[in-house]
Design a binder for these strands. Structure first.
Lengths: 149, 149
DNA sequence: CCAATCTCTACTATTCCAATCGGGATACTA
DNA sequence: TAGTATCCCGATTGGAATAGTAGAGATTGG
């Protein structure tokens, strides 16, 4: 499992929506600016997230995107699976199709990959965007304790 | 971190050498046959492992490859790093270069990626080829308890 | 010398990825 | 109803990574 740029953008976009937590829809352009994402690429990505049911959209003058669920319910794992289909380290390589003949070491390696996939999934599925936002805010205040506007 | 075919071949090749555990060098062709790897591709890969210091080779009529260390000392993590350079999930994407400006969520995501990388590393570095061979043998005898030759 | 093997560099074909483009649909606003 | 700002969607491009191949050279043992 490698986290592609596309996937990182998706996560950042959802994070941004969670962070703003505004009842109003947020425009692609605003998200793109705040998170430094190529706008037209983000367009494609948000559309994918919409089809996945993770964000809702509104068109027209005051349109934009908003979360389809609460930030507590949305996890990193869900977004990754929506964008890259799977979370497994041996993806795109799956030798499963012709698994009629097995070779020495297959059992051992299968178990190894599964252990890794489980560990990763556990972290991703156990991390909600609410937690991410919370962590970010805590970090920001710790690192800039006496900031001035 | 995605485990490429190349990397899986490398791991299987080292596994095969560990499994045979023969004082004699094993020919590329034999490894390729046993593990179902394209021979000339395996050639390139074994050479890389040799440069990494994980296997030794002998040329000539009775030449071939053998482990440069014991199977107990060789870990999955070492081989992966040798073949694909890194074990991080955010590799090839690293936004580190222009990390002068930071965006909302960077702290949170950096911490997330690090947690994942640590979990994966812990498994890979904690798994030796001796263990893999041992596990494979145990599985084989469990799954075929009364096999006949 | 010969044959089997590894060694090295280069090459190709395919797939994947990041990003862009043009035009269409929709919704608000005046 | 015209206009504009936004999302919607399919196609396309350029470049990098991946999987695998090719051929000539070096080494070893018989």
């Amino acid at each position: 499992m490698r986290i592609s740029k596309r996937c990182q953008y998706a996560l950042k976009a959802v994070f941004e929506l969670a962070r703003r937590n505004s009842g109003q829809p947020v425009k692609i352009h605003d998200i793109a600016d705040t998170q430094n994402i190529p706008p037209r690429f983000l367009e494609v990505i948000l559309n994918q997230l919409r089809h996945g049911g993770f964000v809702d959209s509104r068109r027209g003058n005051e349109g934009g995107y908003m979360l389809a669920r609460t930030a507590e319910e949305l996890t990193v794992g869900q977004i990754i699976r929506c964008v890259q289909g799977s979370i497994s380290v041996t993806d795109g390589n799956s030798e499963k199709p012709n698994k009629t003949e097995s070779f020495f070491g297959d059992c051992a390696f299968d178990q190894l990959w599964q252990r890794i996939d489980n560990a990763v999934s556990q972290i991703c599925d156990g991390t909600s965007f609410a937690e991410l936002v919370e962590y970010e805010m805590a970090e920001k205040t710790v690192r800039v304790p006496n900031y001035v506007i």
